[in-house]
């Protein structure tokens, strides 16, 4: 074999080629993300400190580095701001409460139907999420079946509605992001060796203690990933609030959208976007630090 007599220099050149390869692999995708994610964010930061051109057309702005835009935007919209985070928090907590037993059941109690059930968790998401949200609106709405039953049983008053309420918005958020909670939970529960739970039982832990001391800590990475994947999109969502809410349930997303399209107030929309993103990133960072899980990606 001639190859066996490869000289030392040939080997080293082979190595150099290999060290260049990862950058070639990274380049196109990273360039795309840089151009269409990082640059727009930078541009957004610039827009956020602009002010309207005096006597100019609607929608024309100039850079005046007016950082007070942020204060104005925040003060004008602090209700929507806090509402976004409260709704997102409630939806995340509800989704966790619903998804954990579901993921637990799929991981440990479903036997040979495990894969099928897993598909079924994701399956609803193959129907457009707008269609499903609107379906909820119609199911819970004035002409739907639920409201008359509830009123008939006097669970709610005759004039109380289920839709166009904060309740409906939170329900919609919870429902829409449920798989983002369930799948990571399942992934980390599934990795737990059931024998560790049996061992806990053997060592005098009852079912509740076993859960609290063994199962829950071991599934914590899934809890962290799931809550993040639910909270982040929920905090920025405006579709649920638009379809299931009323003017008093508007979230920050709704404001950003209307500032952009209806009022053409780009600086305020940019300042709000930036504030929202920063707030979420700070929350996420603190949360990850506390939960002690760095490896999320």
């Amino acid at each position: 074999m001639a190859l066996l007599h490869a000289s030392g220099s040939k080997v080293s050149s082979l190595k150099e080629k290999r060290s260049l390869l990862p950058y070639l692999l990274l380049a196109p995708g990273i360039l795309w993300l840089f151009t269409f994610f990082i640059l727009p964010i930078v541009n957004l930061a610039q827009t956020s400190t602009q002010t309207p051109v005096t006597n100019g057309d609607t929608g024309s702005y100039e850079q005046t580095f007016r950082f007070a835009n942020y204060i104005d935007a925040f003060v004008d919209n602090k209700e929507q701001f806090s509402r976004s985070f409260i709704y997102a928090f409630l939806a995340t907590a509800l989704a966790l409460a619903i998804a954990y037993p579901l993921a637990y059941g799929i991981a440990f109690k479903s036997g040979k139907y495990k894969n099928l059930l897993l598909v079924l968790v994701v399956a609803p998401f193959f129907t457009s999420f707008l269609l499903r949200t609107i379906a909820w609106k119609q199911i819970l709405g004035e002409e739907g079946p639920v409201i008359s039953v509830f009123r008939g049983l006097h669970i709610i008053g005759q004039n109380t509605s289920l839709t166009a309420s904060a309740f409906a918005v939170v329900t919609g958020l919870t429902y829409n992001f449920l798989p983002f909670m369930t799948l990571p939970l399942y992934a980390s529960l599934e990795r737990i060796d059931p024998r560790t739970m049996e061992a806990a039982g053997d060592l005098y832990a009852n079912a509740f203690t076993t859960f609290r001391k063994v199962t829950l800590p071991l599934s914590l990475p899934g809890v962290v990933a799931g809550t993040l994947l639910t909270f982040i999109p929920a905090a920025g969502d405006y579709v649920n609030a638009a379809i299931l809410g009323n003017p008093n349930t508007k979230m920050l997303g709704n404001v950003i959208e209307s500032r952009f399209f209806k009022i053409v107030d780009y600086p305020t929309a940019a300042a709000l976007s930036f504030t929202l993103m920063t707030a979420i990133l700070i929350l996420v960072t603190v949360y990850i630090r506390k939960a002690g899980t760095e490896e999320l990606v």
């Binding site: 066996l4 007599h5 490869a6 030392g8 080997v11 082979l14």
Partner: peptide, 12 residues
């Protein structure tokens, strides 16, 4: 034959 620095697929 010195095989110290050859690649795995170049070795018998």
């Amino acid at each position: 034959t010195d095989i110290t620095h050859t690649r795995p697929y170049q070795r018998p």
